[in-house]
Design a protein around this nucleic acid. Structure first.
Lengths: 110, 110
DNA sequence: GCACACCATCGGTAAATACCGATATTGCGA
DNA sequence: TCGCAATATCGGTATTTACCGATGGTGTGC
């Protein structure tokens, strides 16, 4: 488990950063797409286990490589996704615990 | 019931607009403050019933009158607050049903 | 009617975000 | 080692957002 994951599970979410990350139609859509990793094209490692490779996210979002990378970095810094690097690929998955915590927090403390 | 309230209760929340509205520290704080309307200075109409007058929100947020007005308009367009105009005062309250619906939506469909 | 208070909107500038192409970094296979 | 593929980061421009003061509309009391 990476430093970032650990932090996001222990420490509270920064709600403003989370809302900023979600306040963009493409980023919000990406988070939705990641609920069904198998819907992406096949890749060396199974998407259901390690996450979806950036290339596939970029292709579906129809943005440049750098924009896709930045989108995922924003989602990751907000704690909403995690990144598993295997070889030259960065695989992204939803951080379900953080997303569940967000739902709780919206319901209880917004 | 106003047109806007009706719309926001019937029709689905625009999640991106909601997240944009909440992706600002002051606006997020205002929404929290409105949970305790009585904590604001007294006003002609009881804040618990009609909402908090803009002047008081402006004072606590320490922004200009125009900025305060715009903040509340953004929250209102996102459906998170409602506005009750009485005489020359605009009173703002949390739209608890919309906020609850947001919690549901975050939990179920994000 | 007039003066005043409250608020929304206009018009502007400053700051932040979006987005891209180019470049740097890293891993892999020949 | 070299070249290539995947990704992160840099440097720039365009767009959006933040924020204010000024202005305008509306209600209230004199």
């Amino acid at each position: 488990m990476t430093q970032t994951q650990e932090q996001e599970l222990e420490q509270d979410l920064d709600l403003v950063a989370v809302f900023k990350a979600l306040g963009h139609p493409t980023r919000l859509a990406i988070l939705g797409w990641l609920k069904d990793p198998e819907s992406f094209p096949p890749q060396d490692q199974p998407a259901g286990e390690v996450g979806v490779c950036l290339k596939h996210i970029q292709a579906r979002a129809e943005v440049s490589q750098s924009t896709a990378s930045q989108f995922m970095a924003i989602l990751q810094r907000a704690g909403l996704v995690t990144c598993t690097r295997i070889g030259q690929w960065s695989h992204y998955s939803r951080n379900e615990r953080a997303i569940e915590a967000l739902g709780q927090k919206v319901t209880l403390s917004i």
